Amino acid sequence: MACRVQKRISLRRKLHILRVLTYSNSAKRTSLAKSTVLRLYKLKLALETVKRQYENLLATRRECVRLLNHVKESKDVKIEKVGAGTFMVRVTCEKGGDNLVAILKAFDEMCLDVQQARVSCENGFFLEAIAVAEDQTLDVRDITEVLLKAIGKQSGEKDSQMFDKCCDS
C-alpha cells in the first residue's frame, strides 16, 4: 500500500513539474501531455528559427569580410606641395617586391632630388620623403601618377607622357 502512495506522490510531483515547465493549468494527464508536446514543438520551431538566423548572420559576415578585402585599398600615394618645387611624398603599400627601387627610379626619371626620407617595412611598405624638383613645372598630379605606376597600381587615366624634363645637357 505504501508503495502505491509513493508512486502516486512521485507521479503528482512529476506532473506538477511538467505543468510548470509547459505553463499549463490543466489537471488532466491527457491535456497535460498534449500541452507538453505542443510546448516541445514550439521550442523546436524556435530553435530552427535561431539556427536559420545564425546561418544568415554567418553568411552576411562572410560576405562583408569578402567585400572589405576586395574594397580594401592597399596602395596609397599622398603628395603635398610644401614650397616652390618642394614636395612631401607619402607612399603606403604592401610589403614585397622592389617598391623602394621602383620609387627611387621614378624620382630619378622626374628629376626629383630626395633631401630627406624615412622608410619602414614593419606593417607594410611606408615611405615618407621630402623631394625637390629640378624642374619647377612639376605638378602634384604628375608625381602621383608616376609613383602609382611605379608601385604597380593602375591609375584610372591613360598612360601619361614620360618626363624627359631633366637637366638639359
Score class of each variant (00 low, 15 high):
Met1Phe: 06
Met1Thr: 10
Cys3Ser: 10
Arg4Ala: 04
Ile9Phe: 09
Leu11Gly: 02
Leu11Ala: 10
Arg12Trp: 10
Leu15Thr: 04
His16Arg: 07
Leu21Cys: 05
Tyr23Gln: 12
Ser24His: 02
Ser26Gly: 05
Ser26Gln: 01
Ala27Met: 15
Lys28Ile: 06
Lys28Met: 07
Arg29Asp: 03
Leu32Arg: 00
Leu32Trp: 01
Ala33Leu: 08
Ala33Ile: 08
Thr36Gln: 00
Arg39Lys: 10
Leu40Trp: 11
Leu40Ile: 11
Tyr41Met: 10
Tyr41Val: 10
Tyr41Trp: 14
Leu45Phe: 11
Leu45Val: 06
Leu45Asp: 04
Thr49Asp: 05
Lys51Gln: 10
Arg52Pro: 01
Glu55Asp: 13
Glu55Pro: 05
Leu58Lys: 14
Arg61Val: 00
Arg61Ser: 00
Arg61Lys: 06
Arg62Cys: 03
Arg62Met: 04
Arg62Asp: 02
Arg62Asn: 04
Glu63Gly: 13
Cys64Asn: 05
Cys64Trp: 07
Leu67Trp: 11
Leu67Ala: 14
Leu68Trp: 09
Asn69Gly: 13
Asn69Cys: 09
His70Asn: 09
Val71Thr: 07
Lys72Asn: 10
Asp76Gly: 05
Lys78Ile: 05
Lys78Asn: 12
Glu80Ala: 10
Lys81Ala: 02
Lys81Asp: 06
Val82Gln: 12
Gly85Thr: 02
Gly85Cys: 07
Thr86Glu: 12
Thr86Gln: 12
Thr86Cys: 13
Met88Ala: 07
Val89Gly: 05
Val89Asp: 08
Arg90Pro: 00
Arg90Glu: 09
Val91Asp: 01
Val91Met: 00
Thr92Trp: 07
Glu94Lys: 06
Glu94Ile: 03
Lys95Trp: 11
Gly97Cys: 12
Asn99Lys: 15
Leu100His: 03
Ile103Leu: 15
Ile103Pro: 10
Ile103Cys: 15
Lys105Cys: 09
Ala106Cys: 15
Ala106Gly: 11
Glu109Ser: 13
Glu109Asn: 09
Asp113Trp: 13
Val114Cys: 15
Gln116Lys: 14
Ala117Val: 02
Asn123Met: 14
Phe125Ser: 00
Phe126Thr: 06
Phe126Tyr: 12
Leu127Pro: 02
Leu127Gly: 00
Leu127Gln: 01
Glu128Leu: 08
Glu128Met: 07
Ala129Pro: 01
Ala129Gln: 01
Ala129Phe: 00
Ala131Pro: 07
Val132His: 02
Val132Ala: 05
Val132Asp: 06
Ala133Leu: 08
Ala133Glu: 06
Glu134Pro: 02
Glu134Asn: 03
Thr137Trp: 04
Leu138Gly: 03
Asp139Trp: 08
Val140Asp: 08
Arg141Ser: 13
Arg141Pro: 00
Thr144Trp: 01
Thr144Gly: 02
Glu145Thr: 00
Val146Arg: 00
Leu147Val: 07
Leu148Met: 15
Ala150Lys: 04
Ala150Trp: 00
Ile151Thr: 04
Gly152Ala: 09
Ser155Tyr: 05
Gly156Arg: 13
Gly156Ile: 07
Glu157Arg: 12
Glu157His: 06
Lys158Thr: 12
Gln161Glu: 14
Gln161Asp: 15
Met162Tyr: 11
Phe163Met: 06
Lys165His: 14
Cys167Val: 14
Ser169Gln: 10
